[in-house]
């Protein structure tokens, strides 16, 4: 063994030693608990929560199917499918809304003169750092039955009785779009900020139309920011728990709320564990799709 490999080994040992505390904390308090969830998803539910140590696939089975209590016929679980579908649909809609509002905002900030940009960015950073629960309470005040919109509409005589907006898919969507909007603006902004506008000018000088230039010059350069923003909004939307709980209540549940229910009133820990892993798998799929898309883009560009 030559001196170089020995030195390399000593270096690797030193580096592992330095990383050890962080790696240990995360392994023990984030990775190991997930391993326990995986094990629990293959066990039988206990009578009062918890699990019985007995191999069972019932937890995973119940994610999508249900058994009739009388004649054991198997059918798709409508309740679970509705919640799963709602989670995906509302997360996609949230991403779309935040993109429609966030892209022009990012564009607006990036095209301000340099000394003004800090101020506009500051305005985006404040809600970004404000407690999620506080922002959910703020948006709830807008649309609840005695809230700002209803009182305004009543006062204007547009409606005779308050419109029930809370505890609907609409309320969850409004809440999530409001709460996650800053997450879209920041990455899109940093992509537009890097864009060299001389490229667009070159396009125009070569008689490209505005639409053509936007599509072929600007959009491809800003695309990584749009993708990053979309994933930053979609992933936490899919796993959202606090906002749908306050805005949707028991009527418009998302996957996160269904999971929590299995460990509370519903009391089916293996099902809760299987649902947790389903949600994690969906999130990981989105993240893998994202890395594929961005690394693929780099190769082409």
């Amino acid at each position: 063994m030559d001196a170089e490999t020995l030195a390399a080994r000593a270096d690797a040992r030193r580096r592992w030693g330095l990383a050890a505390p962080a790696v240990a904390i995360i392994t023990l308090f984030s990775i190991l608990p997930l391993g326990v969830v995986l094990v629990y998803s293959f066990l039988a539910p206990g009578d009062f929560g918890n699990v019985r140590w007995q191999l069972s696939f019932e937890g995973w089975f119940s994610v999508l199917f249900e058994r009739d209590i009388f004649d054991d016929t198997i059918s798709l679980s409508d309740a679970h499918l509705t919640i799963l579908g709602r989670s995906v649909a509302l997360s996609l809609a949230t991403t779309l809304i935040t993109l429609v509002l966030g892209l022009p905002t990012a564009w607006f900030i990036a095209t301000r003169p340099l000394h003004q940009r800090a101020f506009w960015l500051f305005l985006i950073t404040i809600p970004f750092w404000t407690n999620l629960l506080v922002r959910t309470i703020a948006v709830q005040e807008m649309i609840r039955s005695e809230g700002v919109f209803n009182r305004l509409f009543l006062w204007l005589g547009l409606i005779d009785a308050p419109i029930q907006m809370m505890f609907t898919n609409f309320a969850v969507l409004v809440g999530m779009a409001y709460v996650f909007l800053p997450l879209m603006v920041l990455p899109v902004y940093s992509a537009i900020e890097k864009f060299d506008f001389r490229l667009a000018e070159a396009g125009y000088d070569l008689y490209a139309s505005r639409a053509y230039c936007l599509r072929r010059v600007i959009l491809p350069m800003v695309r990584p920011g749009i993708i990053a923003g979309s994933i930053l909004v979609f992933v936490p939307s899919l796993g959202a728990y606090v906002t749908p709980r306050i805005m949707g209540g028991g009527k418009s549940m998302m996957l996160g709320n269904l999971i929590e229910m299995q460990f509370g009133q519903g009391r089916n820990w293996p099902l809760g564990a299987a649902l947790s892993l389903t949600l994690t798998a969906l999130v990981l799929a989105a993240l893998i799709w994202y890395t594929r898309l961005t690394s693929g883009g780099r190769r082409n560009g």
């Binding site: 997930l34 326990v36 796993g239 460990f263 949600l279 990981l284």
Partner: peptide
């Protein structure tokens, strides 16, 4: 990379 609710349950 893991949703907060999943980590909380775990």
């Amino acid at each position: 990379m893991v949703p907060e609710i999943v980590l909380a349950i775990a």
